[in-house]
């Protein structure tokens, strides 16, 4: 356990230090969310109904940003060799890496999500649901995204490849998350969408590390 705590601290420090963490993700998120109203027209009546949808789409895209660095850097500089020779299993190692990715990138984005959505015209009383669903969805994005990142290790155009692998897998959380919020906005029951989002993220947390570990071992050979 001691080793995993050490790894967690290192991953957090790297995420903040390497420029791929929140310092890059937050402006990127804001840029996408600002760009879309220009594309669909800035009319408030037109924008308000799709505000939560846009904020979720932007969230999914932003979550892709730092995935390329999750395993590729460690592979290139030999740190993945070292990680494979620690006492913890590769599965636990991948779990910790994604957890740190979530905390470094997903959590700041979840804080920004209500601000973005409200700026686009979502109802102010929705902010807490937008925050919690973005936090929960971000967990799924980090772990599912980690599988794509591990599969893309060693490929030259890793970033694009990860996006192509991972974006189809981001469909369910985008549907569940955006649906929950839009239903809450209409005064309908939002719990089912939220529960499905939670189920998706927790299943990803439980299953993805095994796929990542297998992909990492494959990359080392």
């Amino acid at each position: 356990m001691n080793e995993l705590a050490t790894l967690f601290r290192r991953e957090l420090a790297l995420a903040w230090g390497r420029g791929g963490g929140p310092m890059l993700a937050l402006p990127f998120y804001a840029c996408i969310a600002t760009l879309l109203p220009f594309a669909v027209g800035g009319d408030h009546a037109q924008l308000a109904p799709i505000a939560t949808g846009i904020s979720w789409l932007a969230l999914a895209l932003t979550s892709l940003l730092s995935l390329e660095r999750l395993f590729e850097r460690d592979f290139e500089d030999g740190a993945l060799d070292l990680l494979a020779l620690g006492a913890p299993s590769m599965v636990a190692t991948c779990f910790i890496k994604c957890l740190a990715q979530w905390l470094a990138t997903g959590a700041p984005l979840a804080i920004a999500a209500p601000i973005i959505a409200l700026g686009l015209g979502a109802k102010p009383e929705l902010w807490s649901l937008i925050f919690t669903s973005a936090l929960l969805g971000g967990l799924g994005f980090a772990f599912t995204g980690g599988v794509g990142a591990a599969l893309a290790i060693g490929s030259r155009r890793g970033g694009v490849l990860i996006a192509v692998i991972v974006l189809p897998l981001f469909v369910p959380p985008v549907i569940f998350g955006a649906t929950a919020i839009s239903q809450a906005a209409d005064g309908l029951a939002w719990q089912s969408g939220f529960a499905l989002l939670g189920a998706y993220s927790l299943a990803s947390v439980a299953l993805s590390p095994f796929a990542m570990a297998a992909a990492c071992r494959n990359a080392l050979s």
Partner: peptide, 24 residues
């Protein structure tokens, strides 16, 4: 090996600490 796994942006102390703690 040839690739030492050291992160170029981190302090030598942090990297030595991590590599040593990770391997026990």
């Amino acid at each position: 090996g040839h690739q030492d796994g050291l992160k170029s942006t981190r302090l030598a102390r942090d990297e030595l600490n991590f590599q040593s703690r990770w391997t026990g």
